[in-house]
């Protein structure tokens, strides 16, 4: 996708490359990179920094038998089972491949739950350090005004949303932290589907959504 306007930051790409992000953030980074050639190229650069560092730092001697053990491991076929074949045909689905693996297929496999005002969500199974969920926002609908205690990343998969900062279309990722209070509104043209990942609960600024929060795990 070439018209992505809002990209990942260096520190997110580097942490993804280093493998230090919580699973939910890894998922949203992998999904954005699937849709954004520029960030794919930047990620390759960060991976090569990792490769160069690994090459140029310490070594720890392997056990004497380890080469033979490795050959035995290879011949047993145990490891080849862990290598998954390529999935998903690019460009034919709304959800990029890494997301499809969590959903078990494309959009039709998503188990939506209504959270009011026509907005639906589906929480994805990740480690508990951070959460990832798909959001379905009907065209023209606003997600309640909210702030953030931690970091929240929102990737547009279909349609678009607009908030106080800008307009976000397919492939765009919004990076929000404590300093941003916003009311995202789905563009009038089409229903908006997003992936959102956060390492803290959202803080809604009106009473009702906050009471509902524990029930919906958002």
């Amino acid at each position: 996708m070439s018209n992505v306007k809002h990209h990942l930051t260096d520190s997110l790409l580097m942490a993804y490359s280093a493998g230090t992000l919580p699973e939910a953030f890894n998922l949203i980074v992998a999904a954005h990179v699937s849709m954004c050639d520029e960030c794919r190229a930047r990620l390759a650069s960060f991976d090569s920094v990792g490769g160069a560092l690994m090459e140029d730092t310490q070594t720890v001697p392997m056990a004497e038998s380890s080469f033979a053990e490795t050959m035995r491991l290879i011949n047993s076929g145990a490891v080849s089972d862990m290598i998954k074949p390529a999935t998903a045909e690019r460009g034919k689905s709304v959800l990029p491949a890494p997301l499809q693996e969590y959903v078990g297929g494309d959009l039709d496999k998503v188990k939506w739950r209504s959270i009011g005002m026509g907005v639906r969500q589906a929480i994805l199974p990740t480690s508990r350090q951070a959460s990832a969920r798909l959001l379905y926002i009907p065209a023209g609908t606003a997600v309640p005004d909210h702030g953030h205690r931690g970091m929240e990343l929102t990737l547009v998969l279909q349609g678009a949303f607009v908030d106080e900062t800008d307009r976000f279309g397919p492939g765009d990722i919004e990076i929000a932290d404590e300093s941003l209070n916003h009311t995202p509104i789905a563009d009038i043209g089409a229903d908006c589907i997003c992936l959102a990942a956060t390492d803290a609960r959202l803080r809604f600024n009106k009473l009702i959504p906050r009471i509902a929060q524990p029930f919906f795990r958002i």
Binding site: E23, L27, V29, A31, L43, R90, P96, P98, T126
Partner: peptide, 17 residues
């Protein structure tokens, strides 16, 4: 790195398409 996430952090590692 992927092995590290898998074995040490017991998490799945989503990879780009």
């Amino acid at each position: 790195r992927n092995r590290k996430i898998d074995a040490l952090r017991k998490q799945r590692r989503p990879e780009p398409e």
